[in-house]
């Protein structure tokens, strides 16, 4: 692999215009890595691009919520995937405290909501409407939930308000919280074997779309204030009576000292912009083709030269 990057770096450096704006610091740029594939590959892709730019890069594995605190302190330099739904709160909190900057959006939308794999639709043809789902509730019943259907929500600390929504919309579902993303996949995997209907929390972009084709349940459309004002949404007396926003942002974030310390790298970061299909492809290289993230990044760079060439200074 080293040979490959060296060759690539040499090639790119030869092509690169010699007019670098100001010299970047020799200190390594620290890129955080989390526990889902697209983010890992994207971070590696960006890392390799920055290496071509002549920067030293280092990766550190961190928690995806705690990372914003680390960015603020400068322990890590940037964050490639800031999801509105999942990390918006942590990101905004960090912004308020200062030390972190918003480096713009990717051309990608994120969405998280109730989701089902395609085989579920065979048993409950009315989907994706939430009323239809509610009518089929008994299909989703398990030994523990009696007549009611079971909805598998994300870990409690993701604060997805599944319980509140069930109550607000009067659904015949019992909400069970999984302890981790892995637990969600395990349940879908187990259901896949005998095509058992299942409805779980899921989000996009992630690898699951490629493994298990599926759809999001269509709830009453998100209206601003649905989580703050009971009057908003179909149930005038309850919060969380809408679906989640169907097109959340995905941002890039950086330590506020980055621009001064690595001006050239920062300029590249500002230009970097991935789309949903590109992100899905990165995830696929690891999740389906079983590559190591570094390899996947190399492969992706090789295949998509036209995408990233223009970002280099």
């Amino acid at each position: 692999m080293n040979k490959f990057t060296t060759a690539l770096t040499a090639g790119v450096l030869a092509l690169a215009p010699l007019s670098a704006i100001a010299a970047d610091s020799d200190d390594p740029i620290v890129i955080p890595i989390h526990n889902w594939s697209s983010q890992i590959v994207m971070s590696n892709v960006v890392g390799q691009i920055l290496e071509m730019n002549g920067n030293a890069v280092e990766y550190v594995t961190t928690d995806s919520q705690a990372v914003y605190e680390s960015v603020r302190l400068g322990d890590v330099t940037l964050e490639m995937e800031v999801w509105e739904g999942a990390f918006g709160a942590s990101f905004r909190a960090a912004l308020e405290k200062g030390g972190i900057v918003d480096v713009g959006d990717h051309n990608a939308v994120t969405r998280e909501d109730w989701w089902y794999p395609m085989w579920t639709k065979d048993a409950c043809p009315g989907l994706p409407s939430w009323e239809a789902l509610n009518d089929c509730a008994s299909l989703f019943a398990t030994a523990e939930t009696g007549d009611k259907g079971r909805y598998l929500d994300g870990p409690v600390d993701w604060l997805k308000h599944g319980q509140e929504r069930v109550e607000a919309l009067g659904m015949d579902f019992v909400v069970v919280n999984a302890g981790s993303a892995a637990a969600l996949w395990a349940e879908i995997g187990a259901a896949e074997a005998d095509k058992r209907p299942i409805v779980v929390f899921n989000w996009t972009p992630n690898f699951a779309e490629a493994v298990w084709p599926g759809e999001f349940v269509e709830f009453p459309e998100w209206v601003d204030g649905c989580d703050k004002d009971p009057a908003v949404g179909p149930n005038p007396n309850a919060l969380y009576d809408c679906g989640n926003p169907a097109n959340g942002y995905m941002k890039k974030a950086a330590w506020d000292g980055m621009e001064a310390k690595w001006p050239s790298a920062y300029a590249i970061l500002e230009k970097i912009d991935f789309s949903n299909p590109q992100i899905a492809e990165m995830a696929k290289l690891v999740d389906i083709d079983e590559m190591e993230p570094t390899e996947a990044a190399e492969v992706w760079l090789e295949a998509n030269e036209d995408v990233w060439k223009g970002w280099l200074n």
């Binding site: 526990n35 889902w36 993303a181």
Partner: peptide, 16 residues
């Protein structure tokens, strides 16, 4: 955030 076998294991479990 310790890299290594544990992190890889978590990542592998995270992608089923």
């Amino acid at each position: 955030g310790m890299p290594g076998l544990g992190a890889k294991l978590l990542a592998m479990m995270g992608s089923f």
